[in-house]
Amino acid sequence: MNTTTTTSGSGPATPRRVGFAGLGHMGSAMAARLLEAGYDVTVWSRTRSKVDELAERGATPGDGPEDAIATGMLFSMLSDEDAVRQVVTPERLRAAPEGFIHVNHATISPGAAGEFAAAAAESGHGYVSAPVVGRPDAVVAGRLTILASGEPRARAAVSPMLDAMGRRVWDFGPQAPSAVVAKISVNYMIVHALQALAESITLLERHGLDGERFVELINDSVFPGPVYGGYGRAIAAGAYTPPGFTSRLGLKDLMLALGAAEDAKVPLPTGPVLREVFEAAVEQVGADLDWACVAEVTRRRAAGDQDSGKNPG
């Protein structure tokens, strides 16, 4: 592998040169954590300003995905599996250095994870599924949760970098699709939480009660934590920018859950209802607002499609 290494005492050499592709809110924060941990990070994104921002913090700017891949260890946080296919192409895999490992942080379908792992193995390379649980502020604070699965040697090789980016890495074994199934399941639960908050807060509001006080109540008793707290406050205030995760991406992940359930012949009774609500949010509320904006679908319907009194955004 074409890397710069350092050693600590009599311990093994640790690769210090890595690549990172995809510098949205999450990717930029994760690449910054690697920089803070002392790694030489070559960064690439379709948005050049994102590359320049990290270059000012010490990253090596890449002109294309090839530059990040050439480091021998690529971490990517791309929007979906089609974006991964466009960046980590068969041609680029064949040109990658010996021992190359791709760590894919995107939430994708189990089938795509198997596809990418097989393509990497065919070229003699490693592949690790490593979707994450947490928003950009969790990355910055060192509270990111990472789920990992893939060939054991590849997972061991990238373990120090994952540790640098997250609070805890959960090992889901040798099969590349396993971690993405776990992540899809997490997001399916969050989708339910968003709709539950939307319905409960709307019910309160229609009875003249204070939604923000209700969120304070549940976080002080039965539902403490970032989902019911952070998203609850956003819904109560009708504040959905800046987005930590957009409604468009939320719909994408919901469809991944429904697809995985169909493949496994698992009935999800609430799935079609949630799909209809998320599709309405994307089309009628804002595809690029935070996915908590799905609450406005319930609010508007409760108000008879009249102004609910909130101003999303």
Rank of each mutant, 00 (worst) to 15 (best):
P174W: 00
A193F: 13
A13Y: 03
V186A: 13
P224K: 01
P242F: 07
G19H: 05
S10I: 11
I218S: 09
T145A: 10
P174C: 03
T47K: 11
A280P: 13
D63R: 09
R275W: 10
I190Y: 06
T107V: 07
P61A: 01
F278L: 14
L78Q: 03
G304L: 02
M77P: 02
P267D: 11
R57A: 07
A176E: 01
A32C: 09
A295R: 08
A176K: 01
L34Y: 04
C293P: 11
T3W: 08
V294H: 03
P152C: 02
V186Y: 13
P243G: 07
K265T: 15
N219C: 11
L144E: 03
G114T: 06
R213N: 04
A130S: 10
R206Y: 09
A257I: 15
P12D: 14
V88T: 00
T107Y: 02
G166C: 04
S247P: 12
Y231R: 03
V181E: 05
L54H: 02
R17K: 13
P65Y: 00
L251A: 12
A302Y: 05
T5W: 02
D63V: 09
A176R: 01
A59I: 04
D288M: 09
G173S: 05
V103S: 06
I69C: 00
S129H: 01
S49M: 05
Y240I: 02
T241K: 12
F100K: 01
S123H: 14
F223C: 09
L254T: 14
F245N: 11
P177C: 12
V227G: 04
L35H: 06
A29M: 08
L194H: 09
T47D: 07
L209T: 11
M189S: 11
A120I: 02
R168C: 05
S221C: 08
I190C: 07
D220Y: 12
M189I: 15
G99D: 01
S129T: 12
H25D: 14
K252L: 09
V18I: 11
R167F: 11
D220F: 07
T246W: 08
A292P: 10
S178P: 07
Y188T: 12
K252H: 09
L254V: 12
G111C: 10
D210P: 12
A164P: 13
A138P: 05
A234I: 02
P131F: 03
L194S: 05
L204G: 14
R168H: 15
E296Q: 10
T89H: 00
R168V: 15
F214N: 04
A31H: 05
P312W: 00
D40Q: 13
L254I: 09
G230R: 01
P269D: 12
G22V: 15
A156E: 11
A261I: 13
R206K: 15
A55T: 14
P272E: 10
G62F: 01
P269Y: 10
A176P: 12
T60A: 03
A302D: 04
R92F: 01
P65E: 00
T107G: 06
A55Q: 05
G309R: 05
V277Y: 07
D220Q: 14
A138G: 07
R17Y: 04
G211V: 12
P12T: 12
A70T: 04
M189F: 13
G9A: 09
R301V: 12
P312I: 02
V277I: 13
